[in-house]
Structure formats: structure tokens, C-alpha cells
Design a binder for these strands. Structure first.
Length: 205
DNA sequence: GCAAGGATATTCT
DNA sequence: GAATATCCTTGCA
């Protein structure tokens, strides 16, 4: 079942935590690729590390779209990253999808990443976009249509256990716990120690 | 398992 | 020129 825009929390940080446990789905002519989102980071308004911090630029316009739109960006010259815009029109913020546990279309992912073990297929933001076949052309797409590339809700309604840590790969704003991951998952990238709080459901940050 | 170094494109100073 | 929301390979444990 696709997640509608009305179901997304309005706040960027709450949205990031909410997205842990949901599903990323890509329907293609040769089949469906899907997986459970196990790791995500928030880049809220006012965060100096956010690509939107400098204001509207030719490359970051998608972060200023209504929440639920894809923002795809090349970093380090080699890795595309998939974000979802998280605020209302004209406000630049987003959440970065960092790791997914493969569910459907594993053979299609393996075809794009030959010789890579299952656990590593979509473990990391750049790996995730390769496995799911997502490139720059996906920038600006609406992820709430339920067609093509979309976000799905799980069948079980149990609140997942989510841990929070500082974000990965940054040299500033390290004090904020804005990285959220499924606590028990083996499909999470980066260090799993140094975690700050452990909590379920909705809380404060 | 973990650390170091290189590759690579774009943006910012 | 330096920095960057990364990944891969190599070397060592």
C-alpha cells in the first residue's frame, strides 16, 4: 500500500524516524524491486550541512518541493543519493535514505551489483541507488503517487525499535542525533555503536 | 572485522 | 585549490 502525502509527518525529524520500517518500491518493466528502509538521516531547516542551507540553487530545487518528492544528487563524483523532501513548498529540507533491506527483485539488484552479497546490496546511500536503478533522472519525482518509484507502508503495524546516532560522513553539526535506524537490522550501514537513545514510536529529539 | 588511500564530479572559497 | 550527505581495494588483524 502506497503512503499518501497526508500520512507523512509534517516535521522533518519526525518524518525521518517515521520512515524507518517503511518500504521503498520501484516498479519497472522487468519487474518490481522493493526493500524495507532500515536507515535514514534528517536534514532539517537551518542545518548548515543541508544541501538546502545556501538557499535555492539550480541543483537543489527538489528539496523545496512539497514533502514526498525525490531529491537525487551526485556526491563525491561517484554516488547518487536518494532523498525525500520533507517540508512544504518553498522550504528546503529532506531525509536521506541510507540503507534498505532487499525484499523483492533481489535478482534484479544482483544483476546491477554482480558478486555483491545480499547484505551489502543496498547497505549505503550510493549502493542503494545502484541496486534500485535510481539516477539523476529521478530528481523531482513525486513519491506519493504509488506509481513507478514510491514509498509503501508495512502490513504489520507494530512500532519498530529505532535507534538514533549522529549522522555519517559529516564534519559539522555532529552533536545532533539525526540518523535513525532499525535497531535490530543487519542491513544498516556504518557504525552501530555510539548510539544515543533507544526508543520506539514518537518521541522528542 | 577495521583503517588508509585513491577515484571521481560538482560546488564553494 | 579545498571540501564533499561515498565506494572500492588493499593490507593487517
Amino acid at each position: 500500500m502506497p503512503l499518501g502525502r497526508d500520512e507523512l509527518p509534517v516535521d522533518t525529524i519526525e518524518l525521518a524516524r517515521f520512515m524507518v520500517g517503511k518500504y521503498l518500491v520501484h516498479d519497472m518493466p522487468d519487474g518490481r524491486i522493493s526493500g524495507q528502509i532500515v536507515e535514514i538521516e534528517a536534514y532539517p531547516v537551518g542545518d548548515s550541512t543541508s544541501h538546502a542551507f545556501q538557499g535555492l540553487r539550480p541543483y537543489n530545487g527538489s528539496m523545496f518541493l512539497e514533502r514526498g518528492h525525490a531529491y537525487v544528487r551526485l556526491t563525491y563524483g561517484t554516488a547518487y543519493m536518494l532523498n525525500m523532501s520533507s517540508e512544504t513548498v518553498g522550504i528546503g529540507a529532506g531525509v536521506l535514505l541510507r540503507a534498505v533491506e532487499p525484499v523483492d527483485g533481489i535478482a534484479l539488484m544482483e544483476a546491477r551489483r554482480p558478486g555483491v552479497p545480499l547484505r551489502d546490496l543496498a547497505r549505503g546511500p550510493g549502493r542503494l541507488t545502484v541496486a534500485f536503478g535510481i539516477g539523476q533522472s529521478f530528481d523531482g519525482r513525486d513519491l506519493c503517487t504509488g506509481r513507478d518509484l514510491w514509498i509503501g507502508k508495512g502490513e504489520d503495524e507494530a512500532d519498530p525499535i529505532v535507534a538514533a546516532t549522529k549522522r555519517i560522513g559529516l564534519s559539522r553539526e555532529m552533536h545532533r542525533p539525526l540518523r535513525f535506524y532499525l535497531s535490530a537490522s543487519a542491513y544498516v550501514s556504518g557504525p552501530r555503536r555510539l548510539l544515543l537513545p533507544l526508543f520506539t514510536g514518537v518521541s522528542d529529539v
